[in-house]
Design a protein around this nucleic acid. Structure first.
Lengths: 367, 367
DNA sequence: CGTTTGTTTGTAACCGGTTTCATGATATCG
DNA sequence: CGATATCATGAAACCGGTTACAAACAAACG
């Protein structure tokens, strides 16, 4: 780093002076929303190119009321689900001429509040909350209060459900996703179906559980408390949850994982117990992140059209920011993707049962 | 959304008026870098709390020369490697009082340039390029030229190698990482070692290849062109590359994947060929993303201390932004993490060879 | 040719902070 | 007690854009 000397920033005043026009005229050329005599316009444009001039977005934002930027607070961008949503969201925003700021809250509520505050200072035109505390059913009163406060100055879009706040809402139809998985399992003859991972105080998880429960009932299957193993949303939760399930006398023949992460933990547990998937146990999950393609066997899971999801979030935020009046609630449809991790329940149909049955390519077996 | 009515933004002038002081005094209270009589200070602070006032960061940035923000352009945040680096980087920046903006270039050079331009407009105090085109050995002349241009106004930190530009550089010691993997494989008795994935025009990949090559030579092992299968950095590349390798008469006993993603593709290919890992083939890779813990078997890989990595990037950027003069180049050390995917070369040592040997828990076998 | 309409342009105010400068009030010191 | 240093504060300029307003000018019309 020899010459740390940075260039002096150049402004419309510099351009104006050299072009022999007023700053207002340069501004008119930049925004393009007023007439400027062709000759002058071209002179200005030449100078802009010559000096590689870029208008100062701060000044612009200060003068206009809008910054064309969105603030996004994500729970954890390392989670491929959020990464995919964020990405789609960012790309959509970008197409609409908006930039995004990102902050990872790591699920800590102080972080979320602090960062929301930051975005407010930065005059983000809207704020987007991806997962995190907004998802809590029993919303911290203080947090909801804070969000409500923010809403008074800036539109807020959440992917969870934040009751009693004027937030816009774009979310997965979790209930329907669960329905699809359950129907799939029913068709394969499963009745002993477990649910692994997730906390019931998170809205989407609660919705999933509700549907799980009611569908079992509708089929006349007794719901066993042992089969619902709550926990977190990570590998470890899946792994430990499944270990617990495999200690049961009547172990389940199918497991619904709360997400792909948990599913991979479940896979691990099953393999370590010397069982086969889907020969002995079927595993299905939510989200269709790339984990479901990478794991062995590939996971049966529910997909969401992330591009659409992200686009709806961004468009809702931007519409609200621009004073148009977007739908307060948008539900994202889900699609069942059947891969290798689900198969007929052992002992049903014409298949040789259990580990002995012919395996699909890529099915895995314990040692 | 009943009452879309947003609050009027309140300013230091409002505060000043109600407190019966001048705006300058309010500003002094805010910045805290000048004396204000205690009585007035408290009055102002009360009002700030009362109105939930936050200073407008745009005005602040316009007035100061700094915005306390960093612009980060990542190749693809969905890649867990970048996600981890970004995250660490963001957290470190946050601790130092900086915010980050993020943009995914998807490796497209136009996107990168456009976004860099955006950050320049937004007066980001520094710009960080994570992967992407900066990694190209044969740097596009036009792109380098553009970056050089940016450097004239804003510090730029890159994780690749961008020759002939005044960029700061923080990167993995790829060469050493490869050395560790190779030594590990040598110790296990492997000689027929393949390299799968990656493009040689990417600096880090080139460095890895160089080390691979020279270490084989040093051991007196003839390097076979068949064993170097370049491609991309994803699952597919690993899968296809491995399929190709398994068609060889003398197939390798160990494979070095260019990253964890590629490794999972390799795993898949091996399993589909009915071979066992590490019984028949050892697989090792780079990055130690969570994929290496999730996959079955768990991957032997090289770790980087992401927190440190991210911190160095952020600190370098911020130091440069603040006119201190950080080291122009920082290398991140690597650590070998041995897990389940690597084992003794078949036919060596006292182990029963090949698929017949006793397998570790969690080792996988094809059908 | 006077009037009307429409185009061009510059001046100046404004967005919301920070900071220099000048001034007045206090405190410290020989 | 007067001189000097320190504290406290407001007025005003500045950061770099946008835009309302007014004025100058040209073209079109009857």
């Amino acid at each position: 780093m020899d010459e740390l000397q940075r260039d002096r920033t150049i402004t419309i005043y510099d351009i104006a002076e050299e072009a022999g026009v007023s700053p207002a005229t340069v501004s008119r050329v930049l925004t393009g929303n007023a007439h400027v005599r062709r000759e002058k316009r071209e002179r200005v444009q030449e100078l802009i190119a010559k000096y590689n001039f870029v208008p100062n977005a701060l000044a612009k934002g200060l003068s206009n009321t809008t910054t064309k930027s969105l603030g996004i607070v994500a729970a954890d961008i390392r989670n491929p689900f959020y990464a995919a949503v964020f990405m789609a969201c960012e790309q959509a925003a970008e197409r609409l001429g908006y930039t995004v700021g990102l902050f990872n809250s790591l699920g800590k509520i102080e972080n979320e509040e602090e960062q929301i505050e930051r975005f407010r200072q930065q005059k983000a035109d809207a704020i987007i909350l991806l997962g995190g505390r907004v998802d809590d059913l029993v919303t911290h009163t203080a947090f909801a209060e804070h969000v409500r406060e923010i809403c008074r100055s800036t539109p807020v879009v959440v992917t969870g459900k934040l009751d009693r706040t004027p937030c816009y809402n774009v979310r997965i139809d979790a209930s329907n996703a669960m329905r699809q998985l359950m129907e799939h399992l029913f068709e394969l003859g499963h009745e002993r179906i477990a649910l692994v991972g997730g906390r019931l105080d998170v809205t989407s998880t609660y919705e999933k559980y509700q549907t799980y429960s009611s569908m079992l009932h509708a089929r006349g299957i007794r719901e066993s408390g042992d089969y619902v193993v709550n926990g977190g949303y990570d590998y470890q939760s899946g792994y430990e949850g499944m270990n617990r399930l495999l200690k049961l006398k009547a172990r389940p023949t199918a497991v619904v994982a709360i997400n792909d992460f948990a599913a991979t933990g479940i896979l691990r547990s099953v393999v370590e117990h010397g069982l086969s998937i889907p020969g002995d146990i079927s595993v299905v999950s939510f989200d269709n992140t790339y984990l479901s393609e990478l794991s062995i066997p590939k996971l049966t899971t529910t997909d969401y059209d992330y591009d659409y999801f992200g686009r709806m979030i961004a468009e809702t935020a931007i519409a609200a920011a621009e004073g148009r009046d977007p739908a307060p609630e948008t539900r994202i449809e889900t699609t069942l993707i059947v891969r290798e991790s689900s198969g007929p329940a052992p002992g049903t149909g014409g298949h040789p049962s259990g580990t002995a049955r012919k395996q699909k390519r890529g099915a895995i077996t314990g040692a």
